[in-house]
């Protein structure tokens, strides 16, 4: 009796452990392959150069800067809105209130909507409705805002990453002890003064974490910007909100599927992927570190 039972036990441990090991190995393999394929082509010239000769040579500087501007604009909108929402959910409405619950449901739903649908929304709302409306009202119908650009792409991306910011800031706000709020209120501070002077300073780490996670997500998403602003090739950096822009992820997609010579540009593709991967890694790990820091404080 006992021997087969022991074997079954070992089998179960083996199967579950095997899955875990397979997962780890897969991740390591993907990373290894991309590093191996890309490291040789990585150089300062590659990072700070423009694509040349029909994008078969040269660097990816415009794509890096385009990504930078995209996530910058996105954070300028998404982080404040997400922070304010998290504050409202935790400081103004109770866990059980109808308003709070419906906003929470909306945030969860927002987190689950496919990114391509955000792209469609950007096209239908920002470009066609807002942009088209602006053009009709102020531009005499001439096409300026009613076409894909970095502003609409950033706004679309801000919406996509909003749940990331909210969840992360909420976690930080929750870790601020209730006693501190009461201490402030008992001194005759108003609710807003308490939030501004006690809760927010204590939540800065969480806000930063949220911003980083959102940026990491935003830098990696391609589907929402496919038709809201990303450009195939634009050697100039965007200098107006109505400009289109190059973007790292989109560049990888373009280079690996539509490059004039897919085989010859393999090194460029790998190196671009490596740059994107390094970027998201750095961002994710700083977020993990900050969160760890935050949790340690919460425990204490």
């Amino acid at each position: 009796m006992s021997i087969p039972k022991k074997w079954v036990g070992r089998g179960v441990a083996l199967v579950t452990g095997g899955s875990a090991i397979a997962t780890v190995l897969t991740v390591l393999a993907i990373m290894g392959i991309i590093v191996y394929g890309g490291i040789g082509h990585l150089s300062w010239d590659f990072i700070f150069g423009s694509p040349e000769k029909g994008m078969t040579e040269g660097g990816i500087y415009p794509a890096i800067m385009g990504t930078f501007f995209l996530v910058l604009l996105m954070s300028l909108v998404g982080v404040p809105v997400g922070t304010v929402t998290a504050i409202y959910l935790n400081e103004y409405v109770g866990q059980t209130s109808k308003v709070g619950r419906s906003i929470r449901f909306a945030v969860n739903t927002l987190a689950g909507i496919p990114s391509i649908v955000f792209g469609l929304f950007g096209l239908g709302f920002f470009i066609s409705f807002m942009g088209g409306g602006i053009d009709k009202a102020f531009n005499g119908g001439e096409l300026l805002w009613g076409q894909p650009n970095i502003l609409w792409a950033s706004l679309t991306m801000a919406l996509l990453t909003l749940p990331v910011v909210i969840v992360s800031v909420e976690e930080a706000i929750k870790s601020v002890p209730r006693e501190l709020r009461e201490g402030s209120l008992a001194l005759g501070a108003t609710r807003l003064e308490t939030i501004w002077k006690v809760v927010l300073p204590q939540s800065m780490t969480g806000i930063l974490t949220g911003a980083i996670l959102a940026i990491s997500r935003g830098a990696g998403e391609v589907a929402p910007i496919l038709f809201t602003g990303a450009a195939y090739f634009l050697p100039e950096l965007p200098d107006a909100l109505t400009d289109q822009f190059m973007e790292l992820g989109y560049h990888i997609y373009i280079m690996s599927t539509q490059s004039p010579d897919v085989e010859a540009t393999k090194p460029i593709q790998f190196a671009t992927t490596l740059v994107l991967l390094l970027l998201t890694f750095t961002l994710n790990f700083s977020a993990i570190f900050l969160r760890w820091h935050l949790r340690r404080r919460a425990i204490r």
Binding site: L180, G183, L187, G188, V198, Q202
Partner: peptide
């Protein structure tokens, strides 16, 4: 209530200095 609390201060069970 905000002005009231200025007139009526409170000390809590667990000391809660601000960080």
């Amino acid at each position: 209530p905000v002005l009231l609390r200025r007139k009526v201060g409170m000390i809590f069970q667990k000391s809660n200095p601000f960080p």
